[in-house]
Amino acid sequence: MRQNALFSPGKRLWHTLLAALLLMLVAGLFVESHPHFGIDAVPGFNAWFPMLACAVLVVLARGLGRIFGPREDEDGR
């Protein structure tokens, strides 16, 4: 039932997305940047860091969901 809500991006969308990301990564090598901390000087930092962060967030949320969910009141379903 819930699986129905899943939206699968078609192949074209996937390819466009990945291509755009790749383009930006390449572009990132050429623009002038002002790293402040060192870690942001690593190539593609703005791409891999959010990816990593989001993945960690999702894992964290699932874990919390196991502990604290589901809610058992008029909001709970």
Binding site: W14, L21, N46, M51, V58
Partner: peptide, 25 residues
């Protein structure tokens, strides 16, 4: 970069996101 990367992650993990839909205490 940030937005595109996040979008990619979203589509990769969308299954997990759907499964945990609910409400927390």
């Amino acid at each position: 970069q940030l937005l595109l990367a996040t979008t990619v992650v979203f589509f990769l993990l969308r299954g997990h996101l759907v499964k945990m839909l609910g409400s927390l205490i």
